[in-house]
């Protein structure tokens, strides 16, 4: 009985890397296909949206997986997008400088709200609703400063150059943005993995289990929570900026407020909070669902597509609480465990 086991960890790792490489090559080649056939233009647009939103969702799950349910991530997206766009339009500041300033603003806001929250132990429902208030503040400020931001009518960054401007980060060729979004998405996953394998992850896991016990064991609770919150907020702000640069249009309804905050949480829960690709799967599901319902139903019955969408979200939460990917992985693991048990018995 000295046969080499089929599934050594090394072999498994290799298979996973090969699969990832194939997926990466397939994703990278989409814009090349588009140069051959215009048919790919629409799928490519959808994929850019999926990758940008996946970044936002992955960022949310960075803290959401530790029980820090924020309903304020719409605010971080909005701050990132609006600060960059306003600096460009009114101060002529290139996004190359505007983006760092916007991200610093996001980090500052996350700190101002996060620090007292964690210091004074605002957790659970209370944390969710305090951050919800933050979402509303940002939305109301955008509405109140409508002379500059355009209010609910939205805001368009001033076009620069002839459709390809590195200075203004404006590209009419969607392929360029496809690659930018791709890099950003992979970066988000990389950050998730870094956090997953760090000591902070153990600290945060301990905190989400029992805050007092982990504080007694020497975990710096406030500091750990603050670190993950600022990281999560900044990445979400980046997603908001990318969305603005890609669409060249933002409004309070698309990048801020309670509706966007809820949308973020939904997609993550639909995909799976606790797995790396869960938020991405959530983005794929929610965006494809919304788009296909929109295309299938068309404009004949306004509201029918979102009605079905809302209904499906409720059903998802009730019947698939671990999310699609989380549910599949769990089923897979149970099957594997059952198989091993059977093999042991035989």
């Amino acid at each position: 009985m000295t046969a080499i086991p089929q599934d050594t960890p090394v072999r498994r790792l290799e298979r996973r890397h090969v699969a990832a490489a194939i997926v990466a090559i397939a994703l990278v080649s989409v814009p090349i296909l588009k140069t051959q056939s215009e048919w790919f233009a629409y799928p490519m647009h959808i994929m850019v949206l999926i990758m940008i939103w996946s970044l936002a969702y992955t960022s949310w799950s960075l803290m959401g997986r530790f029980g820090l349910v924020s309903l304020g991530h719409g605010a971080f997206m909005g701050i990132g997008a609006y600060v960059t766009a306003l600096l460009w339009n009114y101060a002529g500041l290139t996004p190359w400088l505007g983006i760092p300033i916007a991200l610093a603003t996001v980090a500052l806001v996350a700190f101002i709200v996060g620090y007292p929250c964690f210091r004074f132990r605002i957790v659970g429902h209370y944390f969710a609703l305090v951050t919800l208030a933050l979402s509303e503040i940002v939305r109301q400020v955008i509405m109140a400063t409508r002379d500059y931001t355009g209010g609910s009518l939205g805001f368009t960054p001033t076009p620069h150059g002839d459709g390809f401007s590195l200075y203004a980060l404006q590209f009419s060729d969607r392929a360029v943005f496809y690659y930018i979004a791709f890099v950003a998405w992979v970066f988000g996953l990389w950050v998730w993995r870094r956090v997953d394998r760090s000591m902070d992850r153990y600290a945060l896991d301990a905190i989400s289990e029992d805050e007092d016990a982990s504080a007694a064991a020497g975990v710096r609770v406030t500091r750990e929570k603050l670190k993950i919150t600022i990281l999560s907020a900044v990445l979400t702000g980046l997603a908001g900026i990318l969305y603005m640069q890609y669409q060249q249009f933002i409004s309070p309804d698309t990048v801020s407020g309670i509706a966007i905050s809820l949308q973020i949480v939904f997609a993550v829960v639909a995909g799976g909070i606790y797995v790396m690709l869960g938020p991405t799967v959530g983005a794929v599901i929610t965006i494809l669902l919304a788009e296909s319902l929109r295309v299938a139903i068309g404009t004949t019955m306004v509201g029918l597509d979102t009605t079905i969408y809302g209904l499906l979200l409720v059903l998802f939460i009730i019947f698939l609480p671990k999310g699609v990917l989380g549910g599949i992985l769990e089923w897979w693991r149970n099957r594997a465990a059952a198989g091993r048990e059977r093999a042991d018995r035989a």
Partner: peptide
């Protein structure tokens, strides 16, 4: 929290419909 949040979307869209 999310289930009632989903209802929020549903009720809004249903009223629109």
């Amino acid at each position: 929290l999310l289930a009632t949040g989903g209802l929020l979307f549903f009720l809004q869209s249903f009223a629109t419909l």
